[in-house]
Amino acid sequence: MSEQPFVKLEGIAKRYPAPGGGVNTVFENLWLACAQGEFVCVIGHSGCGKTTILNVLAGLERPSEGYAFVQGREIAGPSLDRAVIFQSHALLPWLTVVENIAFAVRSKWPDWDNARVREHCRKHIALVNLTGAERKRPAELSGGMKQRVGIARALAIEPKMLLMDEPFSALDALTRGVLQEEVLKICAETRQTVFMITHDVDEAILLADRIVLMTNGPGARVAEVMLNTLPRDRNRHDIHRHPHYYPIRNHLLDFLIDRSKSFERELEGRAYDPQNPPLVMPGIGEAPTAQRRAAAAPSLARNGT
């Protein structure tokens, strides 16, 4: 990344006091950067601290150690510049769709008059294809529609960065696909900087420019950073026909199924720099991962895994 990173995490850690008196380390010495206009996906199993990383970026949580910067300034708390799309959509159930979005719009621009707020809401409701449902309350909407409202609410404040915490994990596969495509389209149009957390391999391949692979917690770390070598104008219909698709997908699945558990053993006798985790580009005639796997295999076999 030649650009000056938009956000930067420098050696952050999250620790909790353990019930027995010790300390539980979810992750430590974690370094991560995200450039302007980049779509970064963090993928890993539950418990590796993905959500904590997102909360640190959102300013909702402070890391136990280390620093988080946005545009060179340390994150002091939540900001309207960084909108969060919550996994549980987090709509206020006593407000209608348009009121939920207007609540966010008025937070950002308190001096706007009603007509301007209404027009701004209308535009963003149309953007997520919810025109006609403005007066409905969240309880009357399907899961997919609720998350559309969540997306509209986040986009309506025109943030510099979108933070998405497994936004589609509660949806059925069909709805998820449609929404992913819409998010892809919106982000491509606006060149939005996005940081997303997921455990869905296909979602990461479809949406992300870079995929950060995290090992299992406790003591999770960034195992690798994968460059998505598929062209940016991806879509669900022919993405799987691209020659790089399966190398990427296989690499991710291999990681999630096996290597995320055994990565510590894989590291034995090999230099690992948490500031610069290995960058992999599956499909671009590279062999380092295969070699590494071969190197790791004996140790795996030895341990009977």
Binding site: L60, P78, A83, L92
Partner: peptide, 9 residues
């Protein structure tokens, strides 16, 4: 809900 309020300052 409180987090929504926090992120919206």
């Amino acid at each position: 809900w409180l987090n929504v309020a926090r992120t919206l300052e």
